[in-house]
């Protein structure tokens, strides 16, 4: 699999590696997918990178590659910001080859990472018709998670037709941030758009939301989908090739 902009892959790894340390990458002719839960089975990440999004892609037979995201992250830190990246696995090999090429083709770096034997449990995630779908700038969402984490370890997300309200409370008090739905949309990327079938009010652990925001560099926008008593879906699109979707179980009143 070859990416002209290796930085896209680095952003994917940085978006995943705090939530899951290692994961099984499913490679097929259609592209690469990954699904993994965090150690407490409270959150899940689902990655899709379609083959047509790569500069070149070939997969002669389906492979499940157990990869340490922590190690992969360390190797990718050596990549130049404009490098292209090629990842390959030979048929009977127990390692993955990561090749980086500088833009002016004068520097070639090659790394080989040992593959891991992971028994990955797969969850079936049904297509859900969510009560509420919010689109907002990913930088804004990252900022809200950071600000709310000052006040408490849980964030209540309430939606109304006017907008969406994030609130948190804890020992030192409470705080809330309300975003009004954008009316005159000049720049789509900066808009707050709320499609609401019915109002929702759900509470989530802010540390997971903050971990999800590590994937924000992938996309200027983030999608938040909510339904009562249903895990939150937090989506960052990967331009022209797929998405990173995070799912987080809500916190329930005892």
């Amino acid at each position: 699999a070859r990416l002209l902009h290796g930085s896209i892959f680095a952003k994917v790894i940085e978006g995943l590696r705090e939530l899951v340390n290692e994961a099984t990458w499913e490679c097929s002719g259609n592209g690469i997918t990954l699904q993994a839960m965090d150690s407490s089975h409270v959150a899940l990440v689902s990655l899709v990178m379609r083959s047509e999004g790569f500069e070149s892609y070939r997969c002669d037979r389906n492979m499940s590659l157990g990869i340490s995201l922590v190690s992969m992250s360390k190797v990718l830190k050596t990549m130049g910001k404009d490098d292209s990246l090629t990842i390959r696995v030979n048929d009977d090999s127990d390692s993955i080859i990561i090749a980086m090429e500088s833009q002016n083709q004068d520097k070639f770096a090659d790394y080989e990472l040992r593959l891991m034997d992971l028994d990955s449990e797969h969850l079936g995630i049904p297509d859900t018709d969510y009560s509420c779908a919010i689109k907002m700038p990913s930088s804004e969402f990252s900022r809200i998670c950071r600000d709310m984490s000052i006040m408490g370890d849980s964030v209540l997300i309430c939606t109304t037709k006017e907008g969406v309200k994030f609130s948190a409370k804890g020992d030192l008090g409470q705080g809330s941030i309300r975003l009004v739905q954008t009316t005159n949309i000049e720049k789509e990327e900066e808009a707050v758009i709320i499609e609401m079938k019915e109002a929702v009010a759900l509470t989530f652990a802010v540390r997971y939301l903050s971990m999800f925001c590590k994937a924000a560099p992938l996309s200027p926008q983030v999608g938040l989908s909510l339904s009562e008593d249903t895990p939150l879906m937090c989506e960052f699109k990967i331009a022209e090739m797929g998405h990173v979707r995070f799912y987080l179980a809500p916190k329930i009143e005892d």
């Binding site: 407490s40 089975h41 899940l44 849980s154 652990a205």
Partner: peptide, 14 residues
Amino acid sequence: KRHQNQLRPYYSSA
């Protein structure tokens, strides 16, 4: 007090 649910009650193992 609120307790944190896991994903399993919502999504079944495929």
